[in-house]
């Protein structure tokens, strides 16, 4: 599978797909998309890269093992859910900034929750696939 064309293409596809996954993640609140799909697309990007260039090279892109993404994402989701408690509202109440941010749009606790989901999904998929790749 290490054809030159595939390898070259994978190098360009990785950033594009990652950008696309972030795009999908951010638009999720208004249009089809969201953290789950975004996470899947991002992991596909990495898996593609690892098939083309070998898992060692993909791991080099990460400074850490992708399984760290799971607790990070879980914490982010949990804290975004807990944050309303600071202003005396029940757990998981949606909090929003009044004005939209440029490019990103409206920002609220639900967005951070979704980012948490995004990270967890990447962590889960990459952990499973990397382990399988390594054990073969």
């Amino acid at each position: 599978m290490r054809s030159l064309i595939f390898r070259t293409a994978a190098g360009y596809l990785l950033p594009i797909l990652l950008l696309f996954s972030v795009f999908i993640l951010l638009r999720g609140h208004y249009l089809p998309g969201g953290g789950f799909v975004g996470g899947l697309i991002a992991s596909i990007a990495f898996v593609l890269h690892s098939i083309a260039n070998g898992i060692e090279n993909t791991k080099k892109i990460f400074k850490f093992h992708p399984r760290i993404l799971m607790p990070m994402g879980l914490c982010l989701s949990l804290f975004s859910g807990l944050s309303p408690l600071l202003v005396n509202k029940p757990f998981m109440t949606g909090l929003w900034f009044k004005e939209p941010f440029p490019v990103i749009g409206m920002v609220g606790s639900a967005l951070f929750f979704d980012i948490g989901v995004y990270l967890v999904v990447i962590g889960v998929v990459l952990t499973i696939i990397f382990t399988i790749l390594e054990s073969i």
């Binding site: 998309g33 949606g94 639900a110």
Partner: peptide, 27 residues
Amino acid sequence: AKGKNVVNVILVDFRGFDTMVEITVLA
């Protein structure tokens, strides 16, 4: 919930607690 995509709003807001547990199970 200030969202137009109902599916996503259900996931991250209305049933956010479910999602929280689901991603934990995934992990």
